[in-house]
Amino acid sequence: MVIATDNLTFNFGDQTVVKSLSLQVPEGSIYGFLGPNGAGKTTTIKLLMNLLKTQQGSIHIFDLELKSNRVKILSQIGSLIEQPAIYLHMSGRENLLNRALLLQVPESRVEEMLNLVHLTNAAHKKAGQYSLGMKQRLGIALALLSDPKLLILDEPTNGLDPNGIIEIRELLIKLVTKHNKTVFISSHLLGEIERMATHVGIINNGELLFQGSISELQTLSQPLIQVETDNTVDAANLLTRNNYEVTEVTDNYFYVPYASKKQMGEMNALLNKNDYAVYSISKQQKDLEKLFLDITQTA
């Protein structure tokens, strides 16, 4: 395990922000750390970086205890925490050069990084004039500068446009598959994590609700078929009589767990045959909110 925490608990005053968290991040994975705002994601990351002092529990990174091996561990981590920390009065290149000097990384890495995040043309511009997306990209360049084995990124796609998000996603996937890195990435967007993560941890109110591989999560976040007809309740009853499982009925829609395209077609035919007018029928991914409900209810 690259990151292993055991019963990690953290309080701000009398408020418990992180509750007995036991993370297991395997090597070579993209670990999506998922949770709504204020769930304790950033606090956990700050604990992992030793920015906050561990109050209870333990943290092991690269199988080393964090507190007693701080410098050794940090030398193999690149991080981006919340909004990127950039000196706004310096240009993008100066920011990278300054960090390269601190980390004793050859200057040639700076140009490589600028190239990688497509900031070569804006390298001489003051970072204060950068757009949010450019700042974010510069932050990622700073995190990657020392060629670390583990990347810890806190909401790295915040403020990026769709192109930027895709670029970052592809970059991270490349780093993991080709360069054998491990990425720990936090987000509040399930869709974003689903597209790249190999492992997922879901946190809410400081508690880890789910941890496992992406395929385990997918069985949990089963898609639903949303059906709109002229008579929702009767149509739902008809389906129930025909051995369909109707999970939810609202004023306008009812929902059936998705199994296959064929099943969707059969359902549609059945409704039509019984003179129900089907206005719409579509496959829907469960959103994070529903997923949370599901996970908390089954837990």
Binding site: K46, M49, N50, L51, R70, V71, K72, I73, L74, S75, Q76, I77, S79, I81, E82, Q83, A85, I86, Y87, L88, R99, L102, L103, L142, S146
Partner: peptide, 15 residues
């Protein structure tokens, strides 16, 4: 303080 860089300074492998 202004650039919010304490956190990145202290997350570098520097004592």
């Amino acid at each position: 303080h202004r650039a919010d860089t304490w956190k990145s300074l202290f997350s570098l492998p520097i004592s």
